[in-house]
Design a protein around this nucleic acid. Structure first.
Lengths: 237, 237
DNA sequence: ATTACTATTCTACGAGTAT
DNA sequence: TATACTCGTAGAATAGTAA
């Protein structure tokens, strides 16, 4: 994995035009550009070459430097990271580990008061069981952001002589699998995000406890699901 | 000036939401995030604080970290740099030092064959004299890019029993001053960009030999100049 | 001119640990 | 538990210089 100083050096070469063309550069010039000695600049160019991020043709007074496809994709990844920070983002990627569920998800999801609302908002009926994703320490900060930007609000209700609390709900994807993330309204201090889907995720992914998963949480109502064509019973008879 | 490792650390805090909200983070968690020891992570947070890039509230188990306005502008500058690399750029910023001219600019610019074409393309008549900007070593690579992406092509012509060569021309700005950059068609191996303007730049900026200047070269025909309303002689009589 | 090796300096990392 | 100090050390940066 390239160090931050390498990425910065590569960026400077790109600014000079190294993405589109060979750049003519002496190690001494490069040194000024990244504010180090000529020797360090020379070594950095060797490192970048060894890492496959640039290609060099040595000349007598200058070297011709071109950023490789690999180097470009590294810079594009940086670009994407900054876009996500500052350009209106439509999804949040969270990483977490599959947690042993308490089995209560199955009970809650099968309450008609929840089930009907999920079908209404999401366009599909959740498989009766939640996959609990534990967002390790730092990653849990993203939950605060999600709480502030709910996509669907599932209302609480009274049933069976008790009350069921409201939850926030977000369309989501695990890989290509359509899913949804839910956050109970009340419990603020948790690092767990519950994931539901029209299928049993533990079987379809598949995954087990302690597996690490990446979930893309969408921050807007998911148009695609709203127009899902469901077969009308009896229509094909 | 923050080191690349500091910028990377700040970026990671931003990804967790530190731009919009306080992020709850322990130094050990942060250590995992930036792949260093707890001690180094702690030190890095102290550095970021000293540099004024983040603000911290120390808690017992976690610290609440918020990116400051200064930190945000640093990240925005990074974002801008990457945007310039990958999003269709409309201007190229070049830095160079004012070079002693040979006085020949004055002669060339006053040839009607050039003057008429400049007025046609740019919408104004250049002051008879060029400001020569010497783009130091590395910066000169940008000239290659400009040669590949000419905005106006000024044709060569015959006059006074000799031939005058064609030049490439680009609308440009020095600060708020409207100007144009010109590159002779022939001489490929030079580090000098000639700058013209409707006024005498040495007086209006003002500037002297060896001053360092920043010039924004626009890569598209400058709409604003095309619609400049020029007084029609006699119309106000 | 350059590049980049070797020797040397010194910075920055992490272990141990106090608070 | 945290944070963050001191300190020994690895490795990065520079000086000197050969090619």
């Amino acid at each position: 994995m390239p160090r931050p100083a390498d990425v910065e050096a590569l960026k400077q070469i790109a600014i000079l035009g190294g993405l589109h063309d060979a750049v003519e550069l002496a190690s001494g010039e490069f040194a000024q550009l990244i504010d180090v000695s000529q020797q360090t600049a020379s070594r950095r160019l060797i490192e970048l070459t060894d890492e496959g991020l640039i290609k060099r043709e040595m000349g007598v007074r200058k070297q011709r430097i071109r950023i490789t496809a690999e180097g470009e994709s590294l810079l594009r990844a940086e670009h994407l990271a900054y876009r996500r920070l500052f350009e209106r983002q439509e999804r949040v990627r969270v990483r977490g580990s599959v947690q042993t569920g308490l089995g209560e998800g199955r009970y809650y999801l099968s309450r008609p008061g929840y089930d009907a609302q999920f079908q209404d908002k999401l366009g599909w009926r959740p498989y009766p069981g939640t996959l609990n994703l534990d967002l390790g320490g730092a990653e849990a900060n993203k939950l605060k952001f999600l709480r502030k930007n709910p996509v669907y609000v599932i209302e609480g209700f009274q049933a069976e002589g008790r009350s069921f609390g409201g939850v926030l709900c977000f369309p989501a994807r695990i890989g290509d699998q359509e899913a949804a993330a839910i956050l109970p309204n009340r419990t603020h201090y948790t690092t767990v995000l519950e994931v539901i889907a029209p299928v049993c995720l533990r079987e379809s992914l598949p995954c087990e406890d302690h597996d690490r998963l990446e979930l893309d949480v969408l921050l807007e109502a998911d148009g695609a699901t709203g127009v899902t064509v469901r077969p009308v019973p009896g229509a094909d008879a």
